[in-house]
Design a protein around this nucleic acid. Sequence first.
DNA 1: TTGTACGCGTTATCAC
DNA 2: GTGATAACGCGTACAA
Lengths: 337, 337
Amino acid sequence: MGNITIRELAQRLGLSIATVSKALKDSYEISDATKKKIVSLANELNYSPNPYASSLRKQQSKTIAVVLPEVADSFFSLAINGIQEVALAKGYHVLFYLSHESFELEKKAINHCNNGRVDGVLISVSSETRDTAHISSLRSKNIPVVFFDRELEGYAAPKVVTNDYECGELAAKHLLDKGCRFPVFLSTSDALAICQNRFSGFANEINKIRNEIATYPFIINCSNDKNIYDQIASILEKFPAIDGIVASVEKLAIQTLLVCADQNIPIPDRIKVLAFSTLETAPLLNPSLTTISQPAFDIGKHSAETLITMIEKKKHSITNDYKAVLPSALNIRKSTQ
Amino acid sequence: MGNITIRELAQRLGLSIATVSKALKDSYEISDATKKKIVSLANELNYSPNPYASSLRKQQSKTIAVVLPEVADSFFSLAINGIQEVALAKGYHVLFYLSHESFELEKKAINHCNNGRVDGVLISVSSETRDTAHISSLRSKNIPVVFFDRELEGYAAPKVVTNDYECGELAAKHLLDKGCRFPVFLSTSDALAICQNRFSGFANEINKIRNEIATYPFIINCSNDKNIYDQIASILEKFPAIDGIVASVEKLAIQTLLVCADQNIPIPDRIKVLAFSTLETAPLLNPSLTTISQPAFDIGKHSAETLITMIEKKKHSITNDYKAVLPSALNIRKSTQ
DNA sequence: TTGTACGCGTTATCAC
DNA sequence: GTGATAACGCGTACAA
């Protein structure tokens, strides 16, 4: 509205629009004297260039989109911090879209990115996501995409992840070491690469001693977001032999602990619990929670750096098979003693 | 780039740009026949209008900014969910800026909003914020601002908050009830209205019985973000009489619990702890944590609704003295038994 | 019912 | 060193 424009500056100073524009960008073509006049008036009037006019002209928005399932989750909120740090440093703005684990919402979000609104997209896919057409459509418009954490197996794009397979092994080993005979892996989706990989590592270890172990479910999918609590409760009832749980994501961990608390299932005495999580309160829980903690901040940071490199270098530097693997750490606490 | 434009659609169909534009908006001026042709081609080519061109022309961006101190905090992450829900429903995009409790970063963020980039701003101020000039500058450009949770006392703008004063009273009453003689209030900033109000209520209760109580610090500011842990540790050392703590924000609560755990200070036996917090793990902590939990989601939701109402109704409906107060709840758990 | 033409605020090219 | 002017893609008076 009452916004001050470059044209107005020009008129007030009796100069041309072009001169003002150049002066504000400190072009060598403009004399120091007029530069000074222009800049000082601009400051005085608190002039700020209209970003959308500029975007339209330059065909770039200096904006990236971040599409993720949830923000009320310690992993994602830390990752966001990393993303924001890079964005701030490089002069990018950040648009957020939450999928809430819904494929439809994710598609909708991606479609908002298809028209010049953003220069690139950072995505951690929903647990429902199987199809990749929506993401391919970004590529067809030359909008770079980087996956972080929750990638899409088989889709060729740069990815920043953690060493999920090894951590799955580590989790299983730890539980077996601590005497578990019937550990089970709680998955949040059979399509997510992070779950698949974490489980593969887990299963690999379990299989080494499988003949010792009776048949019971190694993996259980808690897909429907609504009643995770009930699902976990019924699992524990149905398979009383279960003496170890690996929660593949934070939400499953918290619900597991709630179920055990409500049903007076002693941890670690009857069931040992290990969670993939960056929960800050893990050491304060009752009992303190053994976790495999991802380098969330660094994953966010590195993925944003990767994306911006692609945007600015026009993808020559980073290829679609680029994959950064940042290691997680096992933090042993009382829930698995 | 290879982006498909309205002009291209027009050329392919041998129509004018105006016709296409109108048809895509389902204008009554265009015949059904040509509408159909246009829409089907648009779909086929996956046409999506350039939002920045549209913003420029319409002088509105359908975008709001959210400026807040932190996202790795359960209150803010839940509030974000509320904001996003409304934004999605009303067709707005959301740009996030984190201040990390820094006034400079907050100013920088606000300055990005000063030029047509956003139609309105939702803000929860940093703990360093005292000056209001940066926010006034938004108003001078007719960009509506709504405060949520962390408002600025004395600055006339719509606000969505919780009943901080009453909750401060409630906190004090509860601790006194449970036998505390020397409860202390941990504040994160002496300038934040939420801290002032929570403390005022707290102090009001304490003062009722003040003559019974020796002199000790009723309120302590943990301002510097870096070493909150150390600050709390030294407070507890310096004032061993302290037998109750009210943590005014989540970060202070967690650090308090960590200090007590490390120093083997038994909760609630030696010190009772109550936190303003929406921590999902509060019931799972050791001991479970008594909280005053804010309606974070609803605060986010209502503030976004308020902002969008102002944007669309051009402020006639909502005045600067608008203030919505959503009540918090006391959840009594073991940390204060 | 459709088309012409202009402007939103910038940037970039080219002429002076 | 400075100034016209043409885009960028869209929306909308106003003609036709």
